[in-house]
Design a protein around this nucleic acid. Structure first.
Lengths: 189, 189
DNA sequence: GCGTCTGCCTAAAAGGTTTAGGCAAATCGG
DNA sequence: CCGATTTGCCTAAACCTTTTAGGCAGACGC
């Protein structure tokens, strides 16, 4: 009997593809076994359980996002950097909706601390180097930017901005203008 | 055999309670049947399927949120209104995490159009009456506020702002200050 | 080539989803 | 007030997903 060559890595990658194609809620251990033409139980040598699979997809997505982010940020500063990073999130969510959804999976603290999530915070902080913000305002701003990026992307993807006018692209551009303006004129406490 | 008195309404309400207590992912038709001490199949006279249950919980949550929002907005304007509405979302998510999670369920367009989601957009627009924004900037601002409210609340709940300093309450306050400032000084295109 | 280890297998239990069809309680018309 | 109809919850059953236990054979180390 030929071996399928399963690894945790390949399972996570295939799970990510399946999430993008069929939606995160259809990513099951069973579906994955079918995709590898292997019996379900075989996957349990590589995965602790079903939630473990989701976690691994989340970690994969966070890492891909962080890689794209640091590539986009290289050589940019100020509004240019802000726009580049923001677009990384939006574009990734559009290209990989299932992976993006997986990236929102709640991770337990140790896993989160070891994840690429840390790099995300660093990247946002890097964007803020182009603006003049001291602590604790810098941390407030990091959190605000994270909120806007995530909030906008998830509402847009969820159809929350459904009515057609104005264009959501237009809103996105204006939102980034607004954030840039806000960061340049951050209000004193 | 005595009847349990099930209705779609009661099922949605019990589902919402269960979501808050155990988490949205543990809200199943089976669990709900157990709670009513009734056989599983009986629920299928009141619910089309499992997804239908989630949808009804989502609609319930959206309505409760809208009710709280309009109560909070009554008699307030400007930053006062902004803060009040923002706190409605944050407080609701803290009090009812399962319901809040359910409210993020993607609804099909007809359901969404008939839902309280419409009132949410109107409430945000009402807040903006306290600021001087003409269309299309007003719509851009509606979307921005929605993004920040939703993004902040979901990141905070998901533990995204985990490190302890500064306090997330402090960030929240400063975020609202920043939004107020931004709306008063909305950048020209 | 032999032994060990590992990877995928079969088997099986347990629980969730959903449909079909039945009986009895509630409700309504006379 | 009683018979007919409707409605609500039931049993039964099929199907799917998750997860554990234990087995056999292919890959690898010597």
């Amino acid at each position: 009997m030929a071996r399928a060559g399963l690894t945790t890595e390949r399972l996570a990658r295939a799970g990510a593809e399946l999430a993008d194609e069929a939606g995160l809620d259809r990513v099951t251990v069973s579906a994955l076994a079918r995709r590898f033409d292997v019996k379900v139980a075989s996957l349990y040598s590589h995965l602790r359980n079903s939630h473990d699979l989701k976690t691994r997809i989340a970690l994969l997505a966070l890492e891909e996002l962080a890689d794209r982010g640091s590539a986009a940020l290289a050589g940019r500063a100020g509004k240019d950097a802000l726009t580049a990073l923001a677009n990384v999130y939006r574009d990734y969510a559009r290209e990989h909706p299932g992976r993006y959804a997986a990236a929102q999976t709640r991770l337990d603290p140790e896993t989160a601390a070891a994840s690429a999530g840390v790099r995300h915070a660093q990247m946002t902080r890097a964007v803020l180097r182009g603006y003049d913000l001291a602590e604790p305002d810098q941390t407030h701003a990091v959190r605000l930017l994270g909120s806007v990026f995530h909030g906008y992307v998830s509402l847009e993807m969820g159809g929350g901005f459904s009515h057609s006018t104005p264009d959501t692209q237009e809103t996105w551009t204006r939102t980034l203008d607004a954030l840039d303006s806000l960061l340049r004129n951050w209000p004193a406490p």
